[in-house]
């Protein structure tokens, strides 16, 4: 089993919902982003192409971050998900340096609030119970492993059943992101990648990403 994504760029309109879905799902503190939408353009007026790429940790099969981590805090699960054990991370930032996609962040300011200088919102407060974050450790997209694990335990299939599928995938209003098992040759995601010629983002970084993009 190796979880992966296929992202249809043609569908994506750059609405940033995937970013907010992740922020809400994991109660991410201000200025912490596990995924992003990169926006740019190529060409010269009037022949211009706007570029919109929603990016997150590629859950690389050959992850640079895991290799450099001295503590083993950053690790890879059997299903390919790369995650950080908050209790082990010393905050050396080597993994942040090493990720060519720059998909890791350090959570530093534990006093940061969404409404600075005002009271914490109820949403922020409950977040500290449901999904606490340790300051001083590195964070990243974990492919919503908690959703996947609880879902599988409840007999659901990630990528098919909403409850077992990553938050950013199910929240996308244009259904630009597909999720599924890359190791299963019959999975929907493999079909899409094959039919629509999916390719990893910057394969030259040589980390064997589990996220494929479709132009």
């Amino acid at each position: 089993m190796r979880w992966g994504m296929a992202i249809e760029l043609k569908r994506c309109v750059g609405c940033y919902e995937c970013v907010l879905a992740c922020k809400a799902e994991h109660f991410l503190p201000p200025d912490i982003f596990w995924n992003r939408v990169l926006i740019g353009e190529t060409g010269k007026y009037p022949t211009v192409t706007k570029l919109i790429y929603n990016v997150r940790c590629n859950q690389c099969a050959d992850p640079a971050c895991v290799k450099v981590c001295p503590t083993g805090a950053t690790q890879q699960r059997e299903d390919g998900i790369v995650w950080v054990d908050e209790d082990k991370c010393v905050g050396c930032r080597y993994c942040m340096i090493a990720c060519p996609y720059q998909m890791r962040m350090m959570y530093e300011d534990e006093n940061a609030q969404y409404f600075p200088g005002q009271e914490l919102t109820e949403h922020e407060k409950i977040g500290k119970e449901l999904y606490p974050h340790q300051p001083g450790v590195v964070q990243k997209c974990v492919f919503c492993k908690e959703r996947i694990d609880a879902g599988i335990e409840a007999g659901l299939t990630p990528g098919v059943d909403r409850e077992a599928t990553p938050a950013c995938v199910i929240s996308c209003p244009t259904k630009a992101i597909h999720f599924g098992d890359l190791d299963d040759p019959n999975s929907e995601i493999n079909r899409i990648i094959k039919e629509k010629h999916g390719h990893p983002f910057h394969p030259e970084f040589d980390t064997d990403p589990s996220i494929y993009y479709i132009d």
Partner: peptide, 29 residues
């Protein structure tokens, strides 16, 4: 007792069928 997340409704056509836009998500705030 606290609203923690907003999802689009997947089971009807009045919206992005399960998806939602960022503004809708941010209504919590």
């Amino acid at each position: 007792g606290v609203i923690v997340k907003i999802n689009g409704e997947p089971d009807n056509d009045f919206g992005p069928r399960g998806g939602i836009c960022a503004k809708g998500e941010a209504m919590i705030q």
